[in-house]
Design a protein around this nucleic acid. Sequence first.
RNA 1: GUGGCUGUAGCUCAGUUGGUUAGAGCAUCAGAUUGUGGUUCUGAGGGUCGGGGGUUCGAGACCCCUCAGUCACCCCA
Length: 467
Amino acid sequence: MSKPSIPQGTRDFGPDVVRKRAFIFNTIRSVFELYGFLPIETPAMENLETLMGKYGEEGDKLIFKILNNGLDNPAKEQQVREDFEKILQGKNNKGITERALKYDLTIPFARYVAMNHGQLTFPFKRYQVQPVWRADRPQKGRYREFYQCDADVVGSNSLLNEVEFVNLYTDVFSKLGIQGCELRINSRKILSALAEVCGGADKLTDITIAIDKLDKIGLEKVKEELSERGLTGEQVLVIEKYLDINGSNESKLAAIKELLLDTEDGKKGVNELEFILNIINDQRSKDENSKAGTTTSLIIDFTLARGLNYYTGIIFEAKAPGTVKIGSIGGGGRYDDLTGLFGVPNIPGVGISFGVDRIYDVMEELQLFPSKVEQGTRVLFFNTGLEESKKAYELLSSLRRSGIAAELFHEPTKFDKQFKYAEKKQIPFIIIIGSKELEEKAFIIKDLRSGEQRSIPFADISSLSFN
RNA sequence: GUGGCUGUAGCUCAGUUGGUUAGAGCAUCAGAUUGUGGUUCUGAGGGUCGGGGGUUCGAGACCCCUCAGUCACCCCA
């Protein structure tokens, strides 16, 4: 027997980790609900064709495919061999695989909307917290199974939705206690205007992929990559000018107008950004937290591109505070016609996502988890024998009824063991009921943190707070 | 999919140019301590040195293969 193990890139979570993760999930969920989003869930697996082709060529490779059952049926052997031949040529085949684990929450949601649009009230605001899977090779902060927390609004073109998401991000990070996050925004329209000015609207994807890497590989390498992707020296020069834009949000907008305002897309993109910025600035000028400088800052970033190619308008990326080297902890954007892929056109939407696993790492590194999230049992009743435990159980039940987590030690053994159990589980109080206490109708309660103990009549147990 | 690094006790790691019976700390269990823990002391258990092959009189160490973990690239949360 070899040692048991779990698949690469997956993780077990112990009790304390689950508690901390639950704190993050609950916080995000409560903010989603506060903004009027409704929960849905979709299956772990989707039909392969629902997912294929939605995430680009690279994305297709990272989809976890599920092998069909019954391939060992002798009667089908010939067919299976032929089907498998197609797999070897890099083509998917229904005879071998027709289901896959979901890759994100957005496409399954689009599929859900396409299937149920007749019943939904628009704008439909949903949130979804579920695991997704990617056949990526794991590395720091990247796993093959991880949770996404998504919120999307479909059926509305209003930019007020984008404003809502800016505030939603801000509220979540504030409630989690993470200070100094950055929310970067851009518009895909700006990027396509850039492509247009560079004489190659068809080069949009190449340009976005290259400039997205700017902060990682530097300007020179980006220029190299652009040349390799077939852009002329003149076009690269325009992009260099574009990438050179910096300063405050206002000066960035002024500079981009100069560069791209001749184009239709450029105008639209700038308008979008200005609209959002104006409202947010106005709101924040009246808000105490913003004045204190502890909120998430909203930053226009023309180098922000985002890989997923279904985005058409505003795009977001949330970044951890600069002191931790984790990078993106969330992202999202507007898509004009996501459900069109599933035969239901003209339902626009905008959505965002939180990367819980990375948020966890950030909070762990900055020690931001409140100590109360690790709180479990408040009081342990010592077991000193059968008769005594009967009384202990009676009192314990009354505590549980009033919401206080309590346990009875599982067997009558020496105090040493029972004390150590309480210590390891960080149970702050122990209660002892022995034969003497039974007779006196009063138990001994001890605070393990201070070592203080006193005797309390059985009847008075409800007056104790166990804090 | 491509490349780098690391695999020795439950955990963190020592282990000399290849040399006899592979060590330490922490953790676990037992005792000192029969109804009062944390500290201390004593003792015990625990290893096919990731797996397979090779070189050698002799391999934890050197070579090859393989598996696993990890980091980076591509891409992304």
